Structure formats: structure tokens, C-alpha cells
Simulated scan of single mutants.
Amino acid sequence: MKGCLCIHGFTGAPYEVEPLVSYLQERTDWVLKTPTLPGHGETPSLKGIEFSEWIAHAENELRDLLEECSEVYIIGFSMGGLIAAYLASRYPVEKLVLLSAAAHYLNPRQMLLDVKGLLADAIRGEGAKNELFIRYRKKVMETPIAAALQFRKLVRYIRPLLEKITIPVLIVQGECDGMVPVKSAVYIYEKVRSRQKELCFMPCSKHLICHGEEFPELAEVIENFLMAQTKTSVK
């Protein structure tokens, strides 16, 4: 039996990877786990939560999956990509997929373009319908500063561990991502020591890469990677 652990991002919830999970459910008989990290969910409550709790929760889910399945993959989105990388550096995982993984964060140029679009909608009286407006307002209003600092600590803690990854890895990055810059994907690609590693850019995708117009292409790339025969990893 194969299993796949799918990890969402900072201030997010499983809905961030839900389209991909549904895609895999329709095409495989794998055991798919999509945990909600502590303090996260549809109504986040991050006050008092430390980054070690996010890692520990995902770690426990992976241990359960490894007991149940003979072959396990991990897919991580944004902050969840870094947690996925951490797990892949420590546990016998077969393959790793990193989506918009936040080894670096905030793309000022793209955020400026996004804000211009937000303002244009506001002028037309359509601000309340703008996905970015809703998302950014929610993050600013509901995310404690202490939680943002915990996110930064997690990034600093995990980045040095990327060099310990030797399993096959697929790194996917949207080129219109306003939260995570393209250089983050390049950085991860250069740091991991896997012999089999792929770097894929989605030219029209923003941060919520599983919810963009290029999702059909994204899903196909991921499916092909996970289904392909594994080559020997660096030891």
C-alpha cells in the first residue's frame, strides 16, 4: 500500500491542497492524509503556538502513515513544503513534492502588481470580491505577530537541513507568486543533494498554486513524477 502526506501552509488549512488530493484520490488507491497543523484551519487560532508544534504534528502523522504503508510520499505547500523537507531529511520517505515552498518569502515586485489589481478593484467597488483582498485582509487582521515570528524561526531552522535530502524531489513554483519568490525554488533545487531532482515553473500561477488556472498541468506533472520509476538516490 502506498501513502501520501499532504501538508498545507502558514495560516492555511487542507483546502490549499484539496484539489490535488481530490485528483490523486480519483486516480489511485493510496492512503492520503491531509492534517490540519496546530492553530490552523478555517478559523486560525495561532496565539501561543510554537513552530515545533507544527513540525511535531506533521511528524506524528507521517509516523502513522509509515506504519500503515510500505511506500510513502510527502507533498508540502508553502510553509508545509519546508516541513515536508524536514521530514524527508529524517524519515524513509520515497519521494518529495514541494509546492511554492517558502525557503524565502515575499516577492515585492509581484506583491506590488497584486496590490495594484486590488486597488483597481476597490476603485470599481469590487474589492470585496477580490480573492487577494480577502486573503491579505484575513492574514493581516488575524495573524498574531508572534505567529509570524514562529514562521520565520521555522524557516531558519529547516533551511540548513535541505542538504540532507537525497530522495527524488519535484520542486514547483508559480512565477506570479506574490508570497514566495522564484529564488526560493532555485535555492532549494541547488541545496538538495538528490540525484533525481526536478524544477518546474508555472508561468501564470500565483501562491495558491493548486487553485490556479494551470492546475491541470500541475496535477499532471506531479502525477508523472510520483508514478515514475525511482532512480537510485545519493547515500
Rank of each mutant, 00 (worst) to 15 (best):
G81P: 03
G81V: 06
I123W: 05
L132E: 04
G39P: 01
P203M: 11
Q229N: 03
N107Q: 02
Y73D: 09
K164A: 12
K95H: 00
T166R: 05
K2W: 12
F151R: 04
T230R: 15
E50R: 15
S205R: 11
C69H: 02
T232G: 06
G174D: 07
S194R: 13
L65F: 03
T34R: 14
V180N: 06
D64L: 13
G3Y: 03
N60A: 13
F77W: 04
E190R: 13
A147G: 10
A219R: 08
A88N: 02
V21C: 12
A147C: 10
Y187F: 14
I75C: 00
E214I: 00
K138A: 12
Y23F: 15
P92F: 01
G48L: 12
L208W: 04
L162H: 13
W54P: 06
R137D: 07
E42G: 09
L65Q: 03
G174A: 06
G117E: 01
E163M: 13
K164D: 14
F133W: 02
E126A: 05
E126Q: 07
A148S: 13
T28K: 11
R135D: 14
R27S: 11
K153P: 09
R156N: 14
V234H: 14
L218Q: 06
I55M: 10
R135M: 09
E163K: 15
A122T: 06
V21H: 06
H8G: 09
I123S: 04
G212Y: 04
K206D: 11
E223I: 00
W30Q: 01
I55P: 03
V186W: 01
E94Y: 02
K33N: 09
E26N: 08
A58C: 10
S70Y: 01
C4D: 06
E217W: 14
V234N: 14
R109M: 01
K95F: 00
E213W: 10
E16Q: 15
L65H: 03
E26C: 06
L118Y: 07
T232E: 15
Y157A: 14
Y189G: 12
P38Q: 12
K235F: 11
L98C: 02
H207Y: 09
G125M: 00
V140K: 08
S194W: 12
H40Y: 04
G12N: 12
A88D: 00
